[in-house]
Design a protein around this nucleic acid. Structure first.
Lengths: 214, 214
DNA sequence: CCCACTTTTGACGAATTCTTAAGGTTTCGC
DNA sequence: GCGAAACCTTAAGAATTCGTCAAAAGTGGG
């Protein structure tokens, strides 16, 4: 299998280094810098999942295309969550592997933080927990959506229209005043008296959280 | 299908905007910045392939996950080659879609929003922030629009009529003197005493910022 | 079916922004 | 220099925008 792929990739003009165990693969990655990695899950010594984990632990962001015969959805999920960039199931067409490789190596991996933070306010995307200065805060669904939107775009001004469209789908949405109401609700929970106001109003435009100056 | 996905994604804490035609999708993407796009191939007006192509032509690098019932390998290859980042075939597990979305949006170049600059004056379109010589400056909506217009055409003289038409795009617009008033307001904030005057009056024609070769 | 909670709406006052117009200043042709 | 046109500044009323509140409407659990 490895030999076959190597031959095909070289025929396409790529330079290829092959490793036959997970440990060898990690060694090779310390020696060279690759544009992309094609990784089989089933490997001696250390399986593909282990390789991905170690690699990402080292902050190596090389694009990874996982490759295996197993078709269990759980495996796909596991591979992608560990930090692989794509997943290909045997049998596959060589052309498809090439196309996915191109897609995967076109961009560098930029990990996205799982926790949004603005000043002493944190929002955990995984657990949906919010806290300000260590104190947990309870938000309703819509309040959460609004805060998340603002924090995902911390430092930028979001226009009122854009906010409304993002939170209430494009369909003939809600009254304009509703946004006022939710901002008000949010502030009551987030920006309590005595604390720095994190949610800013930009009159005539919209709202912004954090990152006001500079 | 779209409604189902939207509901599921919202339940996962994502903010979602839905478009029901390819053309609508492109419009939405001009309006907002997304972390990722889930794109069906079969769409009215403009199919998924077309959307991907247009998007990449505009240098929009938003991660795209193609989604369709078709299973032909040729389609996968086509989608990926046009610049999609991944491809999912129905039927699929919702969990798998989530995992792929995470993988796909983990990378993703964050295109730097445009910043207009004239001398030591900068205007950030994304954050709506303005600064002169490092000092932040607050502008009202109309002042901002006026400055943006001038800076987008830095070095060029804009006729008074053109400015009024651009900013008050209503048929029956405003009095001519209003423009004077706003130029005056702008100068009070931008060109403070002791600094080089950036906004120039071109008598009988209009105004220019930054500009002309001296 | 009722209750608790969330979402939405409408109204009102407060604050900000826009527009206009009047009077002052600069520029240009002669 | 002189006058006229163009432009600048300012102030004040008009208009818009926003925050808050209370109540209505919707939602889901028990």
């Amino acid at each position: 299998m490895a030999a076959l792929l190597e031959k095909g990739l070289r025929a396409e003009g790529h330079s290829v280094v092959t490793a036959h165990t997970g440990v060898n693969a990690l060694e090779a990655m310390q020696t060279w810098k690759f544009d992309a990695i094609v990784l089989d899950i089933m490997l001696p010594k250390l399986d593909g999942f282990g390789v991905v984990r170690r690699l990402r632990e080292r902050r190596d962001q090389t694009p990874i295309l996982m490759l295996t015969a197993r078709d269990a959805p759980a495996d796909k999920v596991k591979g992608l969550d560990l930090g692989a960039d794509d997943y290909l199931t045997k049998p596959f067409l060589f052309d498809e592997l090439l196309a996915r490789l191109r897609a995967v190596s076109r961009r560098g991996a930029i990990p996205r933080p799982a926790i949004l933070r603005v000043a002493d306010l944190t929002l955990d995307l995984a657990t949906h927990q919010i806290s300000r200065n260590g104190q947990p805060i309870e938000l309703t669904r819509t309040e959460f959506a609004l805060l998340e939107l603002l924090m995902r775009n911390a430092g930028r001004v979001l226009e009122r229209d854009a906010i409304i469209a993002a939170i209430w789908n494009t369909a003939e949405s809600v009254e304009d005043g509703t946004l006022n109401a939710f901002i008000s609700l949010l502030r009551q929970k987030i920006d309590r008296k005595g604390e720095v106001q994190l949610i800013e109003t930009v009159r005539g435009i919209g709202y912004r959280i954090g990152g006001g100056v500079k």
